[in-house]
Write a protein that binds this DNA or RNA. Sequence first.
DNA 1: TTCTTTGCAAATCGTTTGCAGCATG
DNA 2: CATGCTGCAAACGATTTGCAAAGAA
Lengths: 146, 146
Amino acid sequence: MRSIEELTDVVRARGGKVTSQRLLIWRALEGDRTHPTAEALLERVKPLLPSLSPATLYSVLNELVEWGDLRRFDAGDGSIHFDPDTSDHAELICLRCHRVWDVRASAAARDVPEEIAGFRVLNHAEQYYGYCADCRRAAGETAVSA
Amino acid sequence: MRSIEELTDVVRARGGKVTSQRLLIWRALEGDRTHPTAEALLERVKPLLPSLSPATLYSVLNELVEWGDLRRFDAGDGSIHFDPDTSDHAELICLRCHRVWDVRASAAARDVPEEIAGFRVLNHAEQYYGYCADCRRAAGETAVSA
DNA sequence: TTCTTTGCAAATCGTTTGCAGCATG
DNA sequence: CATGCTGCAAACGATTTGCAAAGAA
């Protein structure tokens, strides 16, 4: 996600307005590494602005996604999470408990092409799906066995 | 996605039953490269078994996802697509029109670790988010300009 | 026969919409 | 003061649920 200052410029350049709601949501996302859902974000900002409506939150999140400043992803169970971290990293997603972990594995550190066959790339994401240690234990799994 | 024969074994091993509905849906997904939504899949199989209910389709899709045989992803706008292609490849996803293209770029051809810190990896996915040529043209964009 | 799975229909829940009032530029 | 944005509440639509009947093993 770009900085608050840059986002301010983006909104102004589009003829939009830098409202307190946008600022609040941007600040809540800034530096976040928890992959929150929309609901979790709402709970986080509600105390700071109780009148904030879900519709506004969704609208601000959607524009960030469309600008390439926020990534939306499915944790494997249909629950939608957001990630403002557009730096190159990968996620481990457990197919049983649906928790998410970041991994800054060497495999993920790689150049992202600026353009692929006329398609302009804004950001890049990577996921590893599988079973986490807890779920493997709970399932009585002891070692890697496909 | 594993073969129909392997999936048959998986179901039997779990004490489940290889029903005609499961077979039908597995066959519809086999070799599919169109990233269909659940709705698109339903339209595809409905003519072959008109009595098939959405609930059954969702249930079969969900178990395939949980087994790591099918990947579910969000095209950036909340629309959920499925992909049975678990081989290493990446997707280009347009943030404006939400269409999806597969790319078997060299960057995607890489070893997937079997295990990462106790997490057992079943499959891997990669996405490039940005704007497609059509949408760039429609927006009056002429060259790469961040 | 036994027990999983199906189909149906209703319920659910996250997200979007329409519109009047408000606040930014 | 012009217009984009917000809050509200209702609408929406995709997915899930509960349960009786069906059909694999």
